[in-house]
């Protein structure tokens, strides 16, 4: 079955972002497809390459990246939510004249249309709130 996930929570603000990762990993291990993960609102922080959690805590950004590599996942960060919160790729950083880009490898910036597309092309959308 084809799943998509919408993630609204930042890695360290609630358990929700970790739940989303757990769910994604389990469904892939069960042989289901993950069409897209759409990170929205504070969820955009899951794609920040400069987050540096202590070594004895879960590194969700790194774990998403590993999963992305293993399954060639489509990890999409809402571009409007990301601009407000300071998650920028190089192109956006230059365009908006900001001093640094911090979008983690394996993630992409795109518009809300990608969420609508995910809903249209998946059998299930599971939302992980904040």
């Amino acid at each position: 079955m084809k799943f998509s996930l919408a993630v609204y929570a930042a890695p360290h603000s609630s358990q929700s972002a970790a739940s989303a990762l757990r769910f994604a990993r389990t469904l892939l291990e069960q042989g289901h497809q993950l069409y897209r993960v759409f990170f929205y609102c504070d969820g955009v922080h899951n794609g920040s390459a400069i987050a540096a959690p202590p070594q004895d805590e879960a590194n969700l950004v790194g774990q998403w990246q590993a999963l992305q590599k293993q399954y060639s996942l489509d990890l999409v960060i809402c571009i409007a939510a990301a601009q407000r919160r300071g998650v920028l790729n190089r192109r956006e950083a230059e365009r908006l004249e900001r001093p640094a880009a911090n979008l983690a490898e394996g993630f992409e910036l795109a518009g809300l249309g990608q969420l609508a597309d995910a809903v249209a092309n998946s059998d299930r959308l599971v939302t992980f709130g904040n």
Binding site: M1, F3, Y8, S16, R22, F23, R25, T26, L27, Q30, H32, D123, R124, L125, V126, T127, F128, G129, N130
Partner: peptide, 20 residues
Amino acid sequence: DDTGWVKLCTEHNPIVSWFQ
């Protein structure tokens, strides 16, 4: 467990999350 969670999601549609 997590496997059961995924299975439950395959058995229902839509899936509505309440978090506010």
